[in-house]
Computed example of a mutant assay.
Amino acid sequence: MIRLLVIALSLAFASLGVSAKPEDTAQPIKRIALSFDDVPRREGAYFTSDERTLLIIEGLRKARVEQAAFFLNPGLIAKRPGAEKRIAAYVAAGHVIANHTNTHPGLSNTSVEDFLADLDAAAEWLEGRDGLRPWFRFPFLDEGRRDAQKRDALRVALAERGLINAYATVDASDWFYENAVAEAERANAQINLAALRELYIKVHVDAAEAYDAIAREAIGRSPAHVMLLHETDLAALFIGDLVRALETKGWTIITNDEAYDDPFARYAATYDTPSAQGTLTEQVAWQMGVSAPRWYEGNNTRIASEWFRTRVLRDTKDTDK
């Protein structure tokens, strides 16, 4: 029953060394590409994996998103029945795929040798596949944290393999809300789905605005942004609504090809900060001397937890269905 209700709501909503100042300081348009990590992801609270993929594809289509990027962990495919077919469906719909390691290790907790072996295992599976781009995204956006030797070793290794660092510039911790919903459903808590939709959209739009303001302060312009999302039931429900909300705020949805062709991409292989983890926006702002905080407040899980509790969970005394 809850699945049918969620799907019905979804369809209803759907109908509704670097210079401090780069050369281009007059970018009039806020541009952003959409990317999804950890594919194939585990099932969520509401949909089967097949249902989720179909809803994400349809949501992107209805929102006229020409191209999203899906970053794969091929080592998880055997644990997710039908995953290879779902990945092919994303590509058939015009989207692209790229490397996110084979089994999703964190670099800061893994030796360089083991990390590269995992990366190469994913590359072997990906080789020759339709929709493949020469991009690599670090799991957890972890580029070695305080270990500059690991950071630099991976920069060399990526260059040797013809891969670019497929950074994100905007992050709203959507994984947190996925986990919060799953936990609430397991506890039989009452979730206000309309409020969940509103919060999901708000945090992502606010994150885009916040990171763009940070980037403008750091480099004097708005770069082509890349939003970090995950293959979740919440994306399946609300991706079309999110796109429309971004467009209402003046954002243009672009392809990841365009985003990674932006001059801002050069920072990904050159920035030098005391700890290498997080969005590229944060790292560049740190390098350029922008004062903290250099990230969106909603990435603080304490704050996100309070938002979810007070805005999404119904009071147990509330009998309004």
Rank of each mutant, 00 (worst) to 15 (best):
residue 284 V to P: 01
residue 65 V to Y: 13
residue 192 N to Q: 03
residue 283 Q to L: 08
residue 2 I to P: 10
residue 222 S to R: 08
residue 235 A to F: 07
residue 103 T to F: 04
residue 8 A to M: 12
residue 37 D to W: 01
residue 40 P to C: 02
residue 10 S to M: 15
residue 111 S to R: 06
residue 318 D to E: 05
residue 144 G to C: 04
residue 264 F to G: 02
residue 96 V to C: 09
residue 175 W to V: 06
residue 115 F to M: 05
residue 285 A to F: 00
residue 304 A to S: 09
residue 174 D to K: 04
residue 119 L to H: 06
residue 213 A to P: 00
residue 223 P to Y: 09
residue 271 Y to L: 05
residue 189 A to T: 05
residue 104 H to E: 09
residue 265 A to C: 09
residue 94 G to T: 07
residue 30 K to N: 04
residue 32 I to M: 13
residue 262 D to R: 00
residue 194 A to Q: 14
residue 144 G to P: 03
residue 224 A to M: 06
residue 234 L to M: 07
residue 254 I to S: 01
residue 65 V to N: 11
residue 34 L to F: 08
residue 63 A to I: 07
residue 139 P to T: 11
residue 281 T to Q: 03
residue 18 V to R: 15
residue 296 Y to M: 01
residue 87 I to D: 06
residue 41 R to L: 10
residue 138 F to A: 04
residue 63 A to Y: 03
residue 64 R to A: 13
residue 106 G to R: 15
residue 60 L to K: 04
residue 56 I to P: 01
residue 6 V to P: 02
residue 272 D to A: 09
residue 232 T to Y: 03
residue 100 H to Q: 08
residue 294 R to W: 02
residue 224 A to S: 07
residue 123 A to M: 11
residue 316 T to S: 11
residue 302 R to D: 06
residue 105 P to M: 03
residue 160 E to Y: 10
residue 178 E to F: 15
residue 262 D to W: 01
residue 95 H to Y: 05
residue 228 L to T: 11
residue 251 W to I: 01
residue 64 R to W: 09
residue 227 M to A: 15
residue 192 N to F: 04
residue 106 G to S: 13
residue 238 F to S: 05
residue 235 A to S: 14
residue 73 N to M: 03
residue 66 E to H: 12
residue 248 T to G: 04
residue 145 R to L: 13
residue 312 V to P: 01
residue 140 F to P: 07
residue 272 D to F: 06
residue 148 A to E: 15
